[in-house]
Simulated assay, not measured.
Amino acid sequence: MPSAQQAREWVADGGLHGIGDSLYTPFSGPDGDDIDYDAYRALVRYCVGDLGHPMLWLTSGLAEWWALTLDERKKLLEVAVEEARAVAPSTVIQACTIANSAKETVELTRHAQQAGADICFLQTPPMEVHGGEGLLRFFHYIADRTDIALGLFNSPSSGYVLTPADIGQIAAEIPAVCALKQGTMHYGESAAIHRAAPELFIWECDSIAYRAGMLQQGIVGAAQLGTAGYLFETPEKRMYTEYWTLIWEGKIVEALAYGKESGLDALYAEKGSWYTRFPGRPGYFTHWSEAYRYVATIMGMPMGDYPHGRPPQAVLPEAAKTQLRRAYENAGLVKQPAEV
């Protein structure tokens, strides 16, 4: 686990690399009030063992962090660290530790540090936020009370999007901050962020950035920090790993051809936007966790007995399930037979 002082050296030496799986939370019991930790353990083992993915991304949007108690978030982290390190000791543990107050964020970050996480990512604060000075005070508050590598998670779901100037100022004043998950899906901003904070390892969530050669230009890094990579391949059909390995090796033309030939491009197109869009709130970016869990179920992954997200997320409609199943059947990734 790198300390705050070691954070940027750790990243420069390849601390963040490869595919990092953002894990869902397997809910169980009435209204999903419980968590199936056995299913969660099995999911961890599947990602780092069967698939061989080198990183995990924990208790973030896909896990519905805002619907979890602090105790649940701590236990999910502890379970993931225990299981992952037992199967693959070198697994990089990324923990999302943002909360609804700065004090709770410190509590979760300290816990992650003590539990063996490698880096904590702080999503842009979702509460009322004063940009500029207020943001800087927030990140200083966390960094001054912890001793672990920190990353920024620039997500539009927070309600405030960090500007390149915001990111540059935070990086300049807080050495523990060494990485950025750029989740706005506007890949053109990565170049501006890189100019403002060249010391940061940037993962651009918009894959166009990688197809455009931004990795080879030194703007973004060779990793997928927090994807649901386990939903785009199986141990028998490693098309997600193959595609991104070609990208990281600089074989962009070959990667584009592989994306088409393997069916990965078709899967992205056919699945639609159910993972990140709720029709009842146009233009809003979300992590519709039931959609991820539904696909995980039809792919044969472990799941609790409550299929939905915790409120205030809506229930996934049948139209979404139909479209998702068809897309994944066409990709040859479905293991669970359709209901008769």
Rank of each mutant, 00 (worst) to 15 (best):
T297G: 03
K271W: 02
L77G: 15
I98P: 05
T163E: 10
T105Y: 09
G304W: 07
A269L: 05
M1I: 13
I202F: 06
E261S: 09
Y328Q: 03
G221D: 04
L16M: 06
L231F: 02
T69P: 13
W274R: 01
D13K: 03
A4I: 12
G14V: 00
H140Q: 12
L246W: 00
A296R: 04
A196D: 11
A67Y: 14
W10K: 12
E290T: 09
S190D: 13
P89K: 01
P307V: 05
A88Q: 09
A179W: 15
F27Q: 07
R310P: 03
E128W: 04
I93E: 10
G132H: 13
Y24H: 07
E9K: 08
G272C: 00
V92A: 15
L231M: 04
I174K: 07
L56V: 13
H130V: 13
Q6S: 11
P337G: 05
Q224M: 03
P337L: 01
P89E: 01
A296Y: 06
K260N: 10
S90N: 12
G159K: 05
E329G: 04
R45V: 07
C96A: 14
K75H: 15
F121K: 15
W10H: 10
R325A: 01
A209M: 06
D36S: 06
M214Q: 08
P54E: 14
D265A: 08
K335R: 13
I252L: 07
P125I: 11
G183S: 12
C178M: 13
S101W: 09
T163W: 09
V106C: 08
L56K: 12
M303F: 05
S3C: 09
P125Y: 09
S3Q: 08
H287L: 03
K260I: 08
E83V: 11
R45Q: 10
Q217S: 01
A143Y: 11
Y210W: 03
K260H: 10
G283I: 07
R211F: 06
G116T: 10
E173I: 02
A99H: 11
Y306H: 10
A314C: 00
I19V: 11
Q94W: 13
G18R: 06
T146R: 15
L58P: 13
I208D: 12
E329H: 04
P317G: 00
E329L: 03
H17L: 04
E133L: 10
V161I: 12
I148W: 14
F278E: 05
M299E: 04
P54K: 09
R238D: 01
T245R: 02
